[in-house]
Amino acid sequence: MFSFLLLHIPDGFLSLSVSGCGWLVAAAVLAWAVRRTSTRLGEAAVPLVGVLGAFIFAAQAVNFPILGGTSGHLLGAALAAILLGPWSAVMVMTAVVIVQAVFFQDGGLLAMGCNLLNMAVLAVFSAHVVYRVLGRLSPRRWWAAVVAGWLSVVVSAAATGVELVWSGMFPASLAMPALLGVYGLVGVAEGLLTASAVGFLERSRPALLEETPLVEQDTAASLLTAGMTATLAVILLAPLASEAPDGLEHLAEHAGLAGTEVAPWFEVFPDYAIGFLGGTPISVVAAVAVGAVAVFALTSLVIRSISGDETV
């Protein structure tokens, strides 16, 4: 039976630099998740997260035949995010990815950083954000769960594609449409399964989704997480930005003004590249990341000075 979820990248496909970047980001998020979960759950963290990690693994183990010869199964990131909140879900999915890689050799060790980033971070936060935002629009949240489940798979697949492209495995023009096309369909099954599980719980234990101590209700934290997830996605996708002229450049060319612009009197990262890293994807990512951090810091400073709120 050919299992339809191929998101566990084995070692040998990703370059060392991409693997290293994946590990850096994943380790940072994981460290924060360990801290948040330990603070919120206290001594219950280990047994609760451990057993619920086994639940996600068991839910993934339920293979259902789709079309003759193929089978599908849950990724579970969206379900974990909806039922447990983002940080506990990150911990749970991290445990799942590690166990799959180490004890079942499904996914690499060096590639684990990227696998964690794709399935335990990006998939979880994208699902969480979508579910929280769309769930507020209607009391019947099942359709928010469908979109959350679908998006978790698509985002995970897109991130996998970006990492493979950066590693020089495939051109973006092939990898991205192929992955997004296939996983756009696979994600529908994930969305429907997620929604039906959430719907079952809403019918049978409606209080559970509100009262479970694992679910985080902090709206400010959710919005901050949403923003940071979106920013991270933009940073990682920056090297894939189109090189075609943007609207202003196109207009300038059309009006015959191209080339008449005055050069800036200083440049920090000309053309979104860091000098000593050259025009590599890593250089673009680093430049965009530095810019994002600078904007975030400046915005925080301005808001703090206006509101006088030390918590911003």
Binding site: A59, V62, L74, L79, S196, A197, G199, L208
Partner: peptide, 11 residues
């Protein structure tokens, strides 16, 4: 059916 199965397993 699968959703109920997964939901039950979660509980």
């Amino acid at each position: 059916v699968y959703g109920a199965l997964v939901g039950n397993l979660f509980l």
